[in-house]
Design a protein around this nucleic acid. Sequence first.
DNA 1: TGCGCGGATTGATACGTATTGATCGGGGAT
DNA 2: ATCCCCGATCAATACGTATCAATCCGCGCA
Lengths: 351, 351
Amino acid sequence: MRKRAGPRRPTQVEIAQRAGVSQATVSLVLSERPGVPVAEETRQRVQQAIEELGYAVNPAARALRGMSVKTIGLYTFESVFPVDQRDFYHPFLVGVEEEAARLGYDLLLFTSANTAHGGVYARGRNALLKADGCVLLGRHISRDDLTNLVDEGFPFVFIGRRDIEGTELSYVAPDYVAPTAALVEELAALGHRRILLLRQSDGAEPGDDRELGLRRGAEAAGLSQDDLLVEYSSGAGDLGTDRVTGWVDDGVTAVLVEPSEDNASGLALAAAAEAAGVRIPDRLSVAFLGSAPPPTATRIWTSFEIPRVEIGRAAVQLLVTLLEDAERSPLQLVVPCTDVRGNSISRVVRR
Amino acid sequence: MRKRAGPRRPTQVEIAQRAGVSQATVSLVLSERPGVPVAEETRQRVQQAIEELGYAVNPAARALRGMSVKTIGLYTFESVFPVDQRDFYHPFLVGVEEEAARLGYDLLLFTSANTAHGGVYARGRNALLKADGCVLLGRHISRDDLTNLVDEGFPFVFIGRRDIEGTELSYVAPDYVAPTAALVEELAALGHRRILLLRQSDGAEPGDDRELGLRRGAEAAGLSQDDLLVEYSSGAGDLGTDRVTGWVDDGVTAVLVEPSEDNASGLALAAAAEAAGVRIPDRLSVAFLGSAPPPTATRIWTSFEIPRVEIGRAAVQLLVTLLEDAERSPLQLVVPCTDVRGNSISRVVRR
DNA sequence: TGCGCGGATTGATACGTATTGATCGGGGAT
DNA sequence: ATCCCCGATCAATACGTATCAATCCGCGCA
C-alpha cells in the first residue's frame, strides 16, 4: 500500500504550459471527438509538446472519471496457466485472448483472488473492479458469488450455462440439446430402444440440457419416455462391472455419457464393459455428449466437439457489447457443436 | 471511451454518513495503519456500514493518489496463450502466475499492445501504466522500447539477459557461463581439443555468455584458445552436409549448439551429420547449451535445463522488491541451470 | 483553577482527467 | 454601426481516495 516510486510523469497541465494553452484544450486534442472543433495550429502545438515530453495519459484518472479503462478481467477458479491437464481450459483462454486483443482490450487475470482465500469477494471485496467487466470460467464458481455480482450490476459473462433463479445472468454456452437429440434419433434409427444417460453427479445445468436433448430426441424418434434411463456417476469409483452388466441385463443397448474434465466416468465405463465382456459397440453403444477421451488406434468415440476457442471469443464479444451498449445487447449466446463420427455406436443386434 | 454503465457503487462518503463519522475516518478504518489510533466502537460502526452497503474500495481513486494497485503487467511479444509451440514460454508464465498469486498481485496481460500495432508504445503511449510494474518476455522485444522504459523510470524486469549501453536494466536470466564452462572441461577430459560453438545468428547476449563460458572452460582445462571455433547459424537453411564434413575435416570433434526456440539448427545439424555419415557421438560429440530437442528412444541430448518456472517466479519476486523497496533491491538475478546427462558426447577416438 | 498532553476525529487538499457552461473575438447580415 | 452567431478556447468542477494539519475533548498534574 506504499506510494509508487520513480520520477513523476508529465501531466496534461505541463503539456498545456509548454504549448501555451489550457489543460482543457489538451484534453480536447487528445480525445479527438468529432463534434468539438479545435484549430489545426493549436492541435499541432499540443501534439508536439506531447511528443517532446513523452506524455502518456494516466489511466487511473480516466477511470476515476468513470471512463472505460479497456481492460477485461478473467476470473478462473483454477490457475490460468496450469501445469497438468491444461487442455481443458486452455482453448477457452486462447479464444478470450485473441478476441480481447482484436477489440483492443487488455486482459486482467485475477490470480490473487483465487489461490488466496477463494471466491470473487476474497480480498478487499470484489477485486474485479479493476476491470471494466469480467469473463468468468470454471465449474466450481460459487453460485452466491454470481448472484452477488448480478445484484451489484457488475458486467460479466460466464462461460458455460448457469441459471440462477430470479436473476438474468449473462453467459455463453455450447448447445448441448440439439446434438444430443440428434444422437438419440440416430440411435433410434439404428434400432436402439432403451437408452441410458449417465450424468455427472454434480447435477449442473449442462446435464439438464443433455437430459432435455435426450427427451426431445426420443420424442422426435417416437421412443417411449419409459425406455429412457438416467443415472449419475461421480467418477471412476462408482462404475464397476456389476453396474454395467446390470444395465445390459435390463435391456439397455446404448449409453450416453456426460463428460467431465478428465472423462473419468467414461473411461471407467469402457474398462468395466471390457472386464464384463460387454463389447463396445457390438453389445453396447457408447457416445459422449461433448468432448470424448482421445482416440486410440482402434477406437474413435462418437461424440461432439465443443468449440472452445469460439466460445472464448464469443464471451469477449458479448461482454464488450454489454459494456458498450448494454441496452441493445443480447444477454446470452449459444454456440453450436460439431459432430464427431466415431466407431463406438452400432446397429443393435436382436438376440 | 464511453462512460461505464450500471448503478453507482457506494463510496466512503456514504459509508461515513451511515456510520455518523467523516470520510476521513472511514479511510482510516480501512487502511488499518498501526500508528493511527481509532476507537474500537467507531471502527465497528464503520465496519457494519461497510458490510451493509457492500462497499468496495475504488481502485482508480487509490491509483490516482499514487498508491499501488497490486497489479503486475505481463508483456510478451508473442501471444500469451499460443496455439502451437506453447511449450517455450509456458513454463515462464506458470512461474509468473504462481508467484504473483502468492504475493497478492493480479496479472495484467497486454494483449492489445502486441498484436495491434506492435511495441510497448503502441496505443496512447505506454499502455503499461495500468500496472504497478511489468515483466517483459520475448526474444523480439525492441531494444529502443527497453531504453525508453528505463529512461521513463518505469519499473520492469526482463526475462532473459539484455545489456543496454549506458543504462542499468533489471533482468532475471539463467546462468549460461558456468554450465557451458563445465561442459567444456568435461569434453577436454574426454580428449577433445578442437571445439566448435554454433551460435544463433542474432548475436544476442545469451550467445555472448555461452562464448564466455566456452573460453573460461577452455582456459580452466588448459586448452588453446586457437582451437576454439565460433560459427553462426540462422536455422535449418545454412546447415548442410558439406558444412559438417568441413568441420570434421578441420579436426573438430565436438560441437556446442546454442538452442533456439524450435531448435532448428540443432536438428539440422543432427540430420546433416547423419546424411554425411558422421556418427554422433562416435565421430562428433554434440551438446546443447540450454534446452535440447526432446529425447528419442535412442538419443538423449547432453544439455542443461533452464529452470523456466523458477525464473518466472524470480522475475516477479525481483519486480516486487523493486516496487516496494527500490533502494535496497538487487537489479539483476541469475538462476543456476541443472545438467542433463545424455549420450550425445563421448571420449574422442584417435584415428 | 489553569495548563498541557495525548488520543480521537475531522476539514481541507491534491492526485490527473473529461466535460460543461461561459467567454472571447471576428465576420456576415441587417 | 449594431447585432448575432459560430468557431475556438478556457475556467471551473467532479470523480473517490489518502493524508496532513488542525480541532476537540477529557484527564492528570501543578
